[in-house]
Write a protein that binds this DNA or RNA. Structure first.
Lengths: 183, 183
DNA sequence: TGGGTCATGTAACCGGTTACATGATTTT
DNA sequence: AAAATCATGTAACCGGTTACATGACCCA
């Protein structure tokens, strides 16, 4: 049992946490558990789940077992060592940067050359996208993480809504007239 | 001039936008412009800026010129084609997923095994980190993106603050007594 | 029993990260 | 003129993404 693993990533802990939470899992189960607890703002593609689970098994943090019959799929169980590592990480201060990668932020930052009407359109676009996202995760996410993510999503929705209003008004206002030259 | 480029990434548009906004730039200038407009929630390491700027130049979207004297550093200017591509992207509906990768979300999702006191500690940790981040970006970020990011950061701060309160109260409450057996 | 979706995997590529390294400027 | 920091680059590695592919199960 290899106990010295080549550095665990956040994805590693996501898997450890999911298995600790849900019990023995197939990779597909893991995908579903993660969808419920982490949600669509931090997706882990299934191909990565296969890789990462195998890696964690090699590191001795998961136990890998293959079904003897039928689909012969792999099943993973957390080991005592895995649970210890998860708890250690949970208690450890978090030092990682937060990433908030939203194309809306990029566009906003560099949209100086767009007309107000175009900006309103951009804002409407993103308002729509965030609203769809909210409905999606309201339906699919559960647990303590959901409340956090919802908080953030609602904040984004309020922001884009007010931004659209702002440019609505801007678009309705007549363009500033040239100041008449004093006689 | 190669006009068919191998797919532009968000990072590509970040650089295009930065140069459109700030005029001719050295890679180091770009780093600073991005720090101001995109901020610390979407960092682009300087090594990547060098690579990406060279790629954009090969694609004909930036013009690369080397100083003839002194440090002989590279300077980039946006081309007409680059500006067109930037505008095209700005006007295009955004289809990319938003990524919100916050270790706090992970810990929250899988912290079921922690004691209330430990959870309070986690919440305090993240409240502190987000507060530091807010002060940082208040001082360093400027432009329309800053307001958006601030909105999100303030939401996170409110969330973690209320979460810490919640577990404070939980910790203050006496543990539920065993119900006295009826006589 | 055939079509669709669920489930499971493999493989190649590449953007991005991390680490190394050094020259130019500024400060003390 | 030494130290510190600013500025600039290179290079290797690897996690993560994308694309390919196939077998099992369900339902009409």
């Amino acid at each position: 049992m290899r106990t010295s693993s080549p550095r665990l990533t956040n994805t590693s802990y996501a898997l450890l946490g999911a298995i600790a939470q849900a019990g023995p899992c197939s990779p597909y189960d893991l995908k579903r558990v993660l969808a419920r607890s982490i949600g669509p703002l931090w997706e882990v593609p299934h191909s990565q789940i296969y890789d990462e689970a195998a890696r964690l098994a090699r590191a001795g943090l998961l136990l890998e077992q293959q079904e003897g019959t039928g689909r012969r799929r792999l099943n993973y169980t957390i080991t005592e060592e895995g649970r210890r590592e998860l708890l250690r990480w949970l208690r450890m201060p978090s030092r990682d940067r937060v990433d908030f990668r939203d194309v809306g932020l990029l566009k906003l930052a560099f949209a100086a050359e767009l007309q107000p009407a175009e900006l309103r359109h951009v804002a409407g676009d993103h308002l729509e996208a965030w609203t769809v996202l909210r409905d999606d995760l309201t339906a699919t996410m559960h647990g303590p993480g959901a409340a956090y993510v919802l908080t953030m999503v609602e904040a984004a929705i309020r922001f884009w809504a007010s931004m659209r209003e702002e440019f609505n008004e801007a678009a309705l206002e007549p363009l500033p007239e040239a100041i008449p030259a004093p006689v």
